[in-house]
């Protein structure tokens, strides 16, 4: 049994602007992951669609949904349908690409979202598994290529000098269960610890972790 759906509110909910939970609300969530990872004002957004997303993004409002997430809007924000125009007014260039081939991560609802500005580029590969719930299959940023198992929440911790994964594990285990853990190094040989968690963290727990590490990304 997979354990993607952890809360009753992923089954009854989310409250959202129609028409599709996987292609609209889930797409907002994929954009939101890119927003959290980028954490800056973008100048360019490129979205690569595959399979069902490539065939039906226009009808489902997937375009404005993903851009809404990148802008940090919630799925029931009334600005969701106008997100593309809002982003363009802020000076962003936006490209949507319908790819003919199969999804690179073998899921019918796949979007690869690349967000950039003069300083940096990040890329998020997300899949929308139904009812507004998503998985993140790949994250590219700052010379790292992180490949999580999929289910959220995911914590990416860049340690302070000489800080070990073990010290973060101890802190996390006091908060929840770690389902999976992986260490990555980037092109400059700097380490990053990835933790796939069993449940969402509370704000106060996130603040504790943030204070303990050099940089913390929570998706």
């Amino acid at each position: 049994m997979a354990n993607n759906y952890k809360s009753v509110f992923e089954i009854i909910g989310p409250i959202m602007i129609g028409p599709s939970s996987s292609h609209t609300a889930g797409a907002v969530a994929i954009g939101q992951a890119a927003h959290d990872l980028f954490a800056d004002q973008p100048t360019e957004i490129r979205v690569d669609y595959y399979e069902s997303f490539a065939e039906t993004h226009l009808g489902h409002g997937t375009d404005y949904a993903i851009v809404s997430g990148v802008l940090g809007f919630a799925p029931d924000d009334p600005r969701v349908p106008d997100a593309v125009e809002i982003a363009q007014k802020q000076g962003m260039t936006i490209h949507f690409v319908e790819n003919q081939g199969p999804s690179p991560v073998n899921h019918p609802n796949t979007a690869v979202v690349r967000v950039s500005n003069a300083k940096k580029t990040i890329e998020v590969t997300g899949v929308s598994i139904g009812g507004g719930t998503i998985e993140i299959r790949a994250l590219k940023f700052n010379g790292y290529l992180v490949k999580p198992q999929g289910p959220l929440p995911i914590v990416l911790a860049i340690p302070k000098p000489n800080q070990t994964a073990a010290s973060i594990v101890t802190q996390l285990e006091a908060m929840t269960t770690i389902n999976h853990q992986e260490t990555y190094t980037n092109s400059e040989a700097l380490p990053l610890f990835e933790f796939d968690l069993d449940r969402r963290l509370q704000r106060r727990q996130l603040e504790q972790l943030r204070a303990a590490t050099a940089q913390l990304i929570y998706i």
């Binding site: 089954i11 009854i12 989310p14 409250i15 959202m16 129609g18 599709s20 939970s21 609300a25 029931d76």
Partner: peptide
């Protein structure tokens, strides 16, 4: 119909099946 008109719904479990419950 509200969902198709991009109105506010509660997905149960999805937006496409939002009217059943």
């Amino acid at each position: 119909e509200v969902n198709a008109a991009m109105g506010v719904v509660c997905a149960t479990p999805t937006a496409g099946s939002t009217g059943t419950l």
